[in-house]
Design a protein around this nucleic acid. Structure first.
Lengths: 144, 144
DNA sequence: TATTGTTATACTCTATAACTATA
DNA sequence: TATAGTTATAGAGTATAACAATA
């Protein structure tokens, strides 16, 4: 059972990754964009901490998003070491599109399931999630 | 939902991996041992193909299992290029233990679920699995 | 020539450790 | 001294290509 969940989960992740490929992005970038969704500019340190990744790893992800014109880095007016990062208008549009892509991928993944099925699946996975979370203790369980 | 499945699946995989750690093995080795469960000696090529991994990758996995005295390589009597691989008695014992470990991990993961819950979860995951399998086309979806 | 097991090479991904510029 | 962003370094993991022995 654990293997089945892991296998299906992996396949679902791959499916989403492939759905993002035409957009030239990876789920990681999607996660970064979602982290900026609020709209308030934040430092890279803050964002990295919120995403649970090293700041050094965020650099490259932001580089691509900036290059694509989805995100902008601006110097902090109060601390010249800090760069404030935020979504630009095109980034907000792109994020909306990517959310739609995620929704489509979601519908393909859950095709053939009734609303009750989905609710039940969510409930059952919730139980399993609680079990494995308790098991893992403080272990990081980021997927991307 | 796809994210939830992926996340839970990843956590379940990590949990199993950790359950195997005290035994000094990785899920990959468990998979290799299971591939040899039948008892018939097979060539490394056959085994690698059955596991869906490159033969070059199997070498290191077998090296460790041989070093542990769980598996033996013997020269083929009919083809001197071939090495026939099979479980040794200690390997069979170890495999039984590891299967028990997997069962314990399984029970922890599914704690709090009734038999009906488990059956339902299996059914729902089966549907999702069929969906993502169809999606993936020929894409490999090995987990380990 | 082709195939078996093996080793070497190259590539990806990642975390940690430097590094610079500020504070 | 300490912190921000960045870059460099090093390690794990893996697939592919090369290799020697044999068919």
């Amino acid at each position: 059972m654990g293997f089945v969940i892991a296998s299906v989960g992996h396949a679902a992740a791959v499916a989403f990754e492939e759905a993002l490929t035409p957009h030239g992005l990876h789920p990681r970038h999607f996660a970064v964009l979602k982290g900026l969704r609020g709209g308030e500019a934040q430092s890279q340190q803050q964002l990295a901490a919120a995403l649970g990744i090293p700041a050094s790893r965020l650099v490259g992800l932001l580089d691509l998003l900036v290059e694509r014109g989805l995100v902008e880095r601006q110097d902090s007016p109060t601390d010249r070491r800090v760069k404030l990062v935020r979504l630009v208008e095109a980034g907000r549009t792109a994020l909306d599109e990517l959310i739609a892509v995620a929704g489509q991928s979601e519908r393909r993944v859950t095709a053939g399931l009734t609303a009750e099925d989905k609710a039940e699946l969510r409930r059952l996975l919730g139980v399993v999630h609680a079990n494995v979370a308790a098991e893992a203790g403080g272990t990081r369980t980021r997927v991307w």
